[in-house]
C-alpha cells in the first residue's frame, strides 16, 4: 500500500495539508462564516421581535375587545336603568293626573247632586203650590168658598207626602 510508504509520502502531504488547512481556516472560513453567522443571528432576532410585536398587538386587541364588550354592557345597563326610571316616573305622573281628575270629577258630581236636590226641593215646593191652588179652586167650586192659603198648602203637603 502506497499509504504506508511513510518515508516518501508523509512529509510532503502533511506540509501541504498544514498550509492548505491554515489558508482554509484563517483565509476563507474565518473571513466568510462570521458574516453569515451575523445574518443568521439578525434573522433570529428579527423573527423573535416580530413574534413579540405580534403577541403584544394581539394582547392589545384582546384588551380593546374586552373594553368594548364592557362598554356595551355598561351602556345596556344604563339604558335599562334609565328606561326603568322613566317608566316609574311616567307611572307616577299618570297616577297623579288620574287622582286630580278623579278629585275634580268627584267635586263636580257632588255639585251636580247638590244642584239636583235643590232643584228637586224647589220643584217639590212648586208642585205643592200648584196642588194647593188646584185644591183651593176645586173647594171654591164645590163649596163656593175659597179656603185660606195656609190651610190649602198644609192639606196639599200632607196629601203629597
Amino acid at each position: 500500500m502506497p499509504q504506508f510508504d511513510f518515508g516518501t509520502v508523509f512529509i510532503p502531504q502533511v506540509a501541504w495539508l498544514a498550509i492548505i488547512f491554515a489558508v482554509l481556516y484563517f483565509g476563507v472560513v474565518r473571513l466568510t462564516l462570521p458574516k453569515v453567522g451575523k445574518v443568521m443571528q439578525a434573522r433570529e432576532d428579527q423573527v423573535a421581535s416580530d413574534l413579540d410585536t405580534a403577541e403584544k398587538a394581539k394582547a392589545s386587541a384582546d384588551r380593546l375587545a374586552a373594553d368594548y364588550d364592557a362598554g356595551v354592557a355598561a351602556a345596556q345597563e344604563a339604558a335599562r336603568a334609565s328606561l326603568t326610571a322613566s317608566r316609574v316616573k311616567s307611572a307616577k305622573a299618570i297616577e297623579k293626573k288620574l287622582a286630580k281628575a278623579n278629585e275634580k270629577l268627584a267635586a263636580e258630581a257632588e255639585a251636580a247632586e247638590a244642584a239636583l236636590s235643590a232643584a228637586r226641593a224647589r220643584a217639590m215646593g212648586e208642585i205643592e203650590g200648584v196642588a194647593a191652588d188646584a185644591a183651593a179652586d176645586i173647594v171654591e167650586k164645590l163649596t163656593g168658598k175659597r179656603p185660606a192659603g195656609a190651610q190649602a198648602n198644609a192639606a196639599a203637603r200632607s196629601a203629597l207626602a
Binding site: T8, P12, Q13, A15, W16, I20, L24, V28
Partner: peptide, 21 residues
C-alpha cells in the same frame, strides 16, 4: 532538505480548497 513537492495529493487538496473558497 525536506521533500515538499507538489504531488497529486496536494493538488487535489488545493482543488478542494478552491472549491470551498
Amino acid at each position: 532538505g525536506y521533500d515538499v513537492s507538489l504531488t497529486n495529493s496536494s493538488f487535489w487538496m488545493l482543488v478542494a480548497l478552491a472549491g470551498i473558497s
